[in-house]
Computed example of a mutant assay.
Amino acid sequence: MTTTSSADTRFSGQESGPLAQARGLRSFIEQEAGRTESARTMTADLVKAFSESGLFGLMVPTSLGGSEADTRTSLEVFEELAYADGSIGWSLMANASTSCFASIYLDDEPTAALFPSGVAGIHGGMFGPVGKATRDENGFLVDGSYRFGSGTGHADWFAAGFIEQENGEDAALESGMPAMRIAFIPAEQITKRDGWNVLGLKGTGSFDYAVESVHVDEAFTFPLLEPVQHRGGATYQIGMFGLVAIGHAGFALGVGRRALDEVLEVAKTKQRLGGDPIAGQQMFLHEFAMHDAAMRSARAFTYEAFEQAEFTAIAEGAPTPVETQRMRQATTYGTRIAADACRFAYTWAGSDGLREPSIIGRCFRDISASTQHVYVDNNTLTAYTQTLMMFGEPSSF
């Protein structure tokens, strides 16, 4: 079922630029959803559409041909795309985030290769430092087996996190933390594997891949914990973890809202055997109102958290420690609220959510898969409380 919903009017952004491009692709994304899941990655037609729209460069600086979107615009775009199809919202989020980091943290020589003039470079991969690398003459010899390479089904360059080795052991920074770096490697030097047979987010192209003794010039790497921004504006100073959180937050808000919009349409005609029409059942009406309020509240909190962090970054050069953790808190909280909304929608939809193809069923599967991501686990919430106790913050209420 495709509905015309509050999703068409709930955004505050203007109808231009990246958000207008994303909205303009909604019907095509929905049309391709079945093929996307079957292919387990973004279809070639969608890749072409996103390349032509410029959305792969949503978070890339304008100096490299990107949109250099602020936090609100990026959230709105990811939310819109995930509303159309969770897998596409997730996959584009992975590509846009990876391209963002390559574009701001690599120097001029590598960015010229990754972002050739007039070409929409597409980047994906795994930033988790599961690989190992030893220094050679001009860089690193990298080895590693990677999983969850979202967006790599159509990527030109792959990211690969690694820990530098010294005398057979993990090298350490002066802080005592492992010397972790991110390498960018051309797709033709990657050993591509499969491994993406999953319950939800089926169409994200999150395939396994390996890097097998590949030389990477040091210029094509950057330090994971202490990256240096080479280009772009102050929005990027919310930090890598804040920039990653934008995509996860927008995804959850889009999927959760779509599930609620869909079940509201189902309820208008749904009647289970021997029961009253769902639209007339007080329990449904009450529970829907509560989930709707929770989603709207989570959305307001999310936008507030990211915009406040961005405001401080522009004014002070970086968000406060509490603001940094609050972006993670809002992302995890929004994901949980969206998961509750999707579970509610799936339960009340009955067989409409069970039988494929079903948008409600897909939302339920996609949000369930997203809850397993390390980026939204319990540690993000405990870290927020610990940071708040350590640094404090005047109440804004």
Rank of each mutant, 00 (worst) to 15 (best):
F11E: 01
G17D: 01
L19P: 12
F28T: 02
Q31M: 14
E32H: 13
G34V: 02
T36Y: 01
M42C: 11
L46A: 07
G54D: 00
G54T: 01
M59F: 05
V60D: 01
T62H: 12
S63P: 06
S67M: 11
A69P: 13
D70K: 12
T73A: 13
N95Y: 07
A113P: 00
F115H: 09
P116Y: 03
V119M: 14
H123V: 12
G124V: 12
G124M: 08
K132A: 10
S145A: 14
Y146H: 07
G151E: 02
H154A: 14
A155Y: 12
I163A: 15
N167Y: 05
G168K: 11
E174Q: 12
G176I: 07
P178K: 06
A179L: 14
R181E: 01
I182S: 10
I185M: 01
P186W: 05
A187N: 03
T191E: 13
W196F: 09
W196T: 02
W196S: 03
G200E: 00
E212S: 15
E218C: 11
T221N: 11
R231H: 02
G233R: 12
A234V: 02
Q237K: 07
G239E: 01
G239K: 06
G242S: 10
A249Q: 05
A252Y: 04
A252W: 06
R258D: 04
D261Y: 03
L264N: 12
T269A: 09
T269G: 06
T269W: 00
K270W: 13
Q271N: 08
L273K: 15
P277M: 11
L285M: 10
E287W: 07
A294D: 11
Y303P: 06
Y303H: 12
A313C: 12
V322S: 06
R328E: 10
T332D: 00
R336T: 00
A338D: 04
C342Y: 01
G353F: 09
L354R: 14
E356P: 06
I360L: 06
I360A: 08
I360Q: 09
G361M: 14
A369E: 14
S370Q: 15
V374L: 13
D377C: 07
N379D: 03
T387C: 03
T387L: 08
M390G: 06
